[in-house]
Simulated scan of single mutants.
Amino acid sequence: MSLALQLDDLSKTFPVGKPLFGPAKAHVRAVRPVTLQVETGETLGIVGESGCGKSTLARMLVGLLPPSTGEIKIEGHRLNNANPAEFGRSIQYVFQDPISSLNPRKSIRSILEVPLKRLHGMNAEARRARISEIFASVNLREEFLERYPHEFSGGQAQRIGIARALAANARIMVLDEPVSALDVSVQAQVLNLLARLKGEFGLTYLFISHDLAVVEAVSDRVAVMYFGAVVEVGKAEKIFAAPRHPYTNLLAGSAPVVGRPLTPPEAKGTELPDPLNPPPGCPFAPRCPKATEICRDVDPPLEQMGEDQFAACHHPLDA
């Protein structure tokens, strides 16, 4: 199968305390070099704690942030960060908060017309026809087009956000917590809609979420991030059932499951490391029950540990 998306050593570093003139006092590596491949038509779930770099990675993928190192390839073609339209035609973002992601001063029709005009140069008649087609595909009535964002529920607003992404005719969608702000019943409707649109338009998804049950249900593969790096990648049905990295095992055990006792909380001092003073070796070593001296000295690379599973660990768990 062909590759829809390829990341080669993609990283992001932010300056801290930079004066008006002169160099910054320090730097924070929000995303350490990430190399990933996403096949056409695949849904890749991305999970991890808050602050692990998921959203920073997503913003680099859609051109909202320039990477510090590395490159992004769409279907084998390298994207130029200096050309935002190139990103817009290739990959689109669906935001976590559907209401605040829509301009409150513009009607829904005006919002949907922007990518059609800016990215594809459509005339008014072509825009009307395309918007009608897109609105029907997300199960919304055309009369809604003359209304404003504040007049919609969260579920309706998220459908409009999805419609805006479809309007760009991009082949890849980055879904950043697309259902976390919605009621449970509405979550199911939006997830079913996304599944249908994926088949109908031949889309590829990167699905970012804290909800492991949702990620496991909708993803073909899952990438687990910790402290800015991908520490495990594998098939969705296997990665939580038989994790190889202790952090993945911690995440899987912390997710509430009916009928299973809750995992006892970790001891104090087991938060993410200080980004201004990152530890040597594996960043997860202070929290890892299997950590040894090599873990505290050498940061392990991501290595294959099964037919379709990769993990960055000196002492991987048994399969």
Rank of each mutant, 00 (worst) to 15 (best):
L3D: 12
L3M: 10
L3I: 14
Q6V: 11
D8Y: 00
F14Q: 01
P19W: 09
V28F: 09
A30W: 07
V31K: 05
R32V: 01
R32P: 03
V34I: 09
V38I: 15
E39M: 09
G45T: 05
I46H: 01
V47A: 02
E49W: 01
E49K: 00
S50G: 11
C52G: 11
G53E: 12
K54L: 12
T56P: 13
R59T: 03
G63R: 02
G63D: 08
L64E: 08
S68T: 15
T69G: 00
E75L: 03
E75N: 14
G76N: 08
L79K: 05
N81M: 05
N83T: 08
P84Q: 08
E86W: 06
R89S: 10
R89T: 13
R89E: 10
V94H: 01
Q96E: 12
P98H: 05
I99P: 00
K106A: 15
S107M: 03
I108A: 00
S110M: 03
I111E: 08
E113V: 01
V114E: 14
K117L: 08
G121Y: 08
G121I: 03
N123Q: 09
A124T: 14
E125K: 12
R127N: 07
R128E: 15
R130S: 10
A136M: 05
V138I: 08
V138P: 09
N139C: 10
R141D: 15
E143M: 00
F144H: 14
E151G: 06
S153R: 07
G155N: 02
Q156S: 07
R159M: 12
I160Q: 08
L166K: 02
A168I: 10
N169S: 15
V174C: 02
D176N: 08
V179I: 15
L182H: 11
V184Q: 09
A188T: 12
Q189T: 14
V190H: 02
V190A: 03
V190T: 06
N192S: 13
L194V: 04
G199H: 14
T204L: 01
Y205A: 07
L206Q: 07
H210P: 13
D211E: 13
V214F: 09
E216D: 14
A217C: 05
A217F: 13
A217G: 02
V218R: 00
S219R: 05
M225V: 04
Y226M: 00
E232D: 04
F240Y: 14
A241K: 15
A242D: 13
P246H: 11
Y247P: 08
N249W: 13
L250P: 13
L251S: 08
S254A: 15
A255E: 13
V257A: 07
G259F: 01
R260H: 06
R260F: 00
P261T: 04
L262A: 14
L262F: 01
T263D: 00
P265L: 12
E266P: 11
A267N: 07
L272I: 01
P275M: 11
P275L: 11
P275A: 11
N277I: 10
P278T: 10
P279I: 13
P280T: 12
P280W: 04
C282T: 03
C282I: 01
C282W: 06
P283Y: 07
F284G: 02
A285M: 01
A285D: 03
A285I: 01
R287K: 10
K290H: 15
T292G: 15
C295K: 00
L302N: 03
M305I: 12
E307T: 11
E307R: 06
Q309E: 12
C313L: 02
P316I: 07
P316F: 10
